[in-house]
Each structure stands twice: as structure tokens, then as C-alpha cells.
């Protein structure tokens, strides 16, 4: 399941609900992304996450479907927030449930890596020097590329 929302989420409740009642689940892995108070050595007052309503949901559903094809998963959850967030606030929750830990861990990492490079979100950081759009990092592309299957190309390598 995927959700894009302004409001905060209760990670404990969300994780507990994932695959609840499904006795085939043997392990749940979860990642929670938080707003840091520093970026590039400068203090961050807050950040605003902008997104592309419609395409965001479509891309998140697609990467979730991709994970379900690659790993034997019982359930997955992606909750991604948008709007203005302050340091310490939760940005994203990714959780995966499977019979065994390896599939849970790997699929969780895959989902985080792919959503960072494919889901249309943009961060605007508020610093003392002014508001600044965060630039995409090559290390995030490298992390996502690790999961690329042989003979496929990245969808996000567009307009280059």
C-alpha cells in the first residue's frame, strides 16, 4: 500500500498493522527517513517537500509492484509526507513483510533507493542564507543503479 500525505504518521502502529493477522509473515523490516538539522555544513530551519500529485502515487505504486515481483513479500507499505517539515520530523516510512528476513531487508532497501530517484518529490531547504532547492546526488543514483536488472535502463534517465 502507498500513501502520500501532509500529516505525520505513527510508525509503530503502521508497522504493527502491516501483515497483521497474516501468519505467513516471519519478519518485518522498516526504514524511517527524518529531517536533519544540518545540510552541507549549514543549519536547516525547515524543509518543504513539493511533489507531483498523480505521478507521485503512480511511481510509488510501480516501484512497490516491482518489489513484489522480485521478492516473496507478504505486504509492503510506503508512506511519504509532503509540505513543510522541521528537523526531527518524519518524512517517509517504508516497511516490508516477508516469511524471511532477507527478502524483507532487501526489498525495504530497494524501495528506499528507488523512490529516492524515481518518485517526483523535491526538497526546498530553509537556511540562514535563504531557501535552496536540494540537488540530486550521484550517490543516490548509484544506490538505485545497484538494483537495476541486467539489460534494463533507468526510467529516470530522461531528457539527457
Amino acid at each position: 500500500m502507498i500513501r502520500v500525505q501532509r500529516e505525520d504518521f505513527d510508525a509503530g502502529k503502521e508497522i504493527a498493522a502491516l501483515g497483521a493477522g497474516n501468519r505467513a509473515v516471519g519478519g518485518v523490516a522498516a526504514f524511517i527517513g527524518l529531517v536533519r538539522d544540518m545540510a552541507g555544513g549549514e543549519a536547516i530551519g525547515a524543509m518543504t517537500l513539493e511533489h507531483y500529485p498523480g505521478m507521485t502515487e503512480r511511481m510509488l505504486e510501480r516501484i512497490e509492484a516491482e518489489a513484489a515481483e522480485r521478492w516473496p513479500l507478504e505486504a509492503t507499505l510506503i508512506v511519504h509526507r509532503h509540505g513543510r517539515l522541521e528537523p526531527g520530523e518524519q518524512i517517509v516510512l517504508v516497511a516490508t513483510a516477508s516469511a524471511h528476513r532477507r527478502a524483507s531487508f532487501e526489498a525495504c532497501e530497494f524501495l528506499v533507493d528507488w523512490l529516492k530517484t524515481k518518485a517526483p518529490f523535491w526538497k526546498l531547504e530553509e537556511k540562514a542564507s535563504g531557501a535552496e532547492w536540494v540537488e540530486a546526488r550521484a550517490s543516490d543514483d548509484d544506490a538505485a543503479a545497484r538494483w537495476r536488472l541486467p539489460g534494463t535502463k533507468s526510467e529516470s534517465d530522461a531528457a539527457e
Partner: peptide, 10 residues
């Protein structure tokens, strides 16, 4: 048609 910079979510 949408125009945007490389994405930075997560």
C-alpha cells in the same frame, strides 16, 4: 507535460 529537476525525495 511536466518539467522538473532530478528528484530529491525520500
Amino acid at each position: 507535460v511536466a518539467l522538473f529537476p532530478p528528484v530529491t525525495g525520500g
